[in-house]
Design a binder for these strands. Structure first.
Lengths: 299, 299
DNA sequence: CACACTTACGATATTCGTAAGGATT
DNA sequence: AATCCTTACGAATATCGTAAGTGTG
């Protein structure tokens, strides 16, 4: 038995309209095409489905049975097709993004706003967490993609740079360094330096940069959250070195911001995906909504 | 979007087995055929469904979605196909037969026994009723076919003779006519004659036969049921003229049975169907189980 | 190099349109 | 004569197999 959906569609149209020519019109087909299709279906099933006179087309008992069974099937099929269309057209779906807190707070929200405007039906989950867990989430497939620094070489992950983030110093506006055009790491360490907890990728980058420059960094307070850093600096308890990306989040503290030279410390962040895996269409759309700032204009 | 069931079947096999070649083996197809089919499906949907490396085949997010939606659809389809197969193979179904009581009691049961042996899953409804209602039931489609005498010419019914039934006289074995080789209608009407109710087709046939022969028939008792006729005759209250077909039903009364001549009154009964309508396969099977006795051997 | 998927290409089958045929009102 | 279904035939498309190509472990 070899009955196709097309045959069922044609059969249903003829059964519902009681006419081959009317059904042909509805389906935008020639009338002989229906005649032939129904005939094939009848041959395939080994049973007459319609009794045709020149004036009317009536279902046989077998035709009634097929109509009963087949109509539900076609409805089901069309519902599934529509459902899939919704999914493919990103009117429905779910994207999981794993991102460093700074990227989740700064880079991601405007991209999300653009994405949501186009695809309001797609729900987006943001896992704002640390680099290691981002790698885990993406590699396991629990997250569609990640936004973080370059992943370990050992992992089965692809990386595309999107954001180059340079460290700046922040301090109170009445601080001595506040008016400077730029500062060096040597300048900074003369004051109490507030750094984030050792688990933070920012902290690790600072530590390695200082070690490379032969400078002893004195950690202070080691808070987990960026806002705490801002508040501590705001209270005059010290200065901090932070990636410029995070500065907008500290606007509440009304601080001064000075570029750091000698050396310029940068971190390159971007998109992390599973190697060789196609992202979902919705994930791809969201990725496209994230602007590429990996080549920042340098005056 | 133009996705066929075949494509879904192939897709599902590949998705479940995680391999094109394994799926090809299961489906008894060449492996390139699957490759091409999946590719067509992907093109049709405009989305990648598998990420292929040479070593493994993994579903993408869209593939997962299609698997979720499509598997249910294919299961549904296969269930419907099996259901329809059951129907067409007459393992399931329902046949409604409208038959005169005598045919329902005598001709139909052995035919039903043969039919049920072949098709135990098909339920048969017997409407044992009178000629007019049989015509109504068949013409309206409420019955698949009828077993009765020839229908009115005005009705949209086809008739095929199956049984020629000749009237015989029945009386008690100690009755004067019991030993005769044959009797005439004139012989019969010398005794009290028990006839059935006027609505009965048997009664109508007798009345018209007697009228044609110029014989006055005296109706007695006019019972509705044949068994009552048998019982009345058995009590010596009269004789009766009945179609020979009904005689087996009166065996309980232990009566004598004598052929009637001058004239020989026959009624031809048979199959009544809607003109131009194909009977259901199950009905056709049941019809085939009814033997054709329209040309009875006459010694 | 063996294995698994893809591409290329040709044979067969299916689908659908146009044209002609037959039956009924 | 008009309407409606069927048949016949040809073109476009789809399906599937064989053979050759490509990439990975």
């Amino acid at each position: 038995m070899n009955v196709s959906l097309r045959q069922l569609q044609i059969f249903r149209a003829v059964a519902e309209l009681g006419s081959f020519s009317a059904a042909a019109e509805r389906l935008h087909l020639s009338q002989p095409a229906l005649s032939s299709a129904v005939r094939k279906l009848e041959d395939g099933l080994g049973a007459r489905l319609f009794d045709r006179t020149t004036r009317q087309v009536v279902l046989t008992a077998e035709g009634e049975e097929l109509k009963r069974l087949g109509t539900r099937l076609i409805d089901e099929f069309e519902a599934v097709a529509a459902d899939l269309q919704d999914y493919l057209a990103q009117r429905r779906g779910r994207v999981v993004v794993a991102a460093l807190p700074s990227l989740a707070a700064v880079t991601l929200p405007p991209a999300l706003a653009r994405f949501k405007a186009d695809h309001p039906g797609v729900s987006v989950i943001i896992r704002d967490t640390l680099h290691d867990q981002i790698q885990e989430l993406v590699e396991s497939g629990a997250a569609d993609f990640g936004l973080t620094v370059a992943p370990d070489k050992t992992r089965d992950l692809e990386f595309r740079p999107l954001i180059v983030d340079r460290f700046v110093m922040i301090c109170r506006k009445d601080h001595r360094l506040a008016a400077r055009q730029s500062v060096t790491w040597a300048d900074i360490v003369r004051y109490p330096v507030i750094t984030m907890a050792r688990t933070s990728s920012v902290r690790q980058l600072i530590d390695s940069a200082c070690a490379a420059a032969g400078i002893e960094s004195q950690s202070q307070y080691d808070p987990e959250h960026l806002a705490t850093v801002g508040a501590l600096v705001s209270q005059g308890l010290g200065v901090a070195a932070l990636p410029s990306l995070t500065i907008p989040l500290l606007r509440f503290a009304d601080l001064a911001e000075v570029p750091i030279r000698k050396p310029v410390v940068e971190r390159t962040m971007g998109l992390v995906q599973r190697r060789g895996r196609t992202p979902s269409v919705a994930a791809a759309s969201l990725i496209r909504a994230i602007p590429d700032r990996s080549q920042p204009e340098r005056p």
